[in-house]
Design a protein around this nucleic acid. Sequence first.
DNA 1: CACTAGATTTTCT
DNA 2: GAAAATCTAGTGG
Length: 201
Amino acid sequence: MSFDMKPLSRSFYVRYTIDVAKDLLGKLLVRRFSDGSYVAGVIVEVEAYRGEDDPASHAYRGLTSRNKVMFGKPGVAYVYFTYGMYHCLNIVTEPEGVPAAVLIRAVEPVFGIDIMMKFRGAKDVRNLTNGPGKLTMAFNITRELNGVDMTKNDVLFVTNYDKYRDFEIESSPRIGIKVGLDKPWRFYIKGNPYVSKTRIK
DNA sequence: CACTAGATTTTCT
DNA sequence: GAAAATCTAGTGG
């Protein structure tokens, strides 16, 4: 393997969500399949969601069957289904009992690009994983992975990668929400061509 | 390039 | 019953 297969530890995720979100930029998201193949991409865009103080969060109105993993162990995948046809991938943060997570909005494809193309049915690499619904499709991430522990070297995890060492982080309001727009909790690598182009309202 | 409408179904009110 | 942490195809400039 040309990258470190050691997943980020639980302690990485047990911190203030905004800090975890920024620190996830430049890391490698890895998805392994049962036949031994894998796909991976550099995380280039994320959004932070918290609990009580964040009206845009699924956890704002308390625990439900959908959002319960947000209240659980940090480092666990929170995958939900939305708009009747898309999935979104989040990673739970902060201590157990505190609802918070980081939404992975876009990655830059690195390994297994041919596999991603098949899952997406797309031809242009630029359009493969530049959005939360697109990257879950390319990585074949569905609700089956909701609750998966990402601190183990398993089907889904994040690890260090050294493609980008020095980069500038830009921030903006989060995308696709109607409340909580006062919080600049979307973070992305400045100038990276794989950041989603969705405009901010 | 900018903007709009339509898809599709789970989840919560 | 309405809205949803989205995407694509289609129209018009």
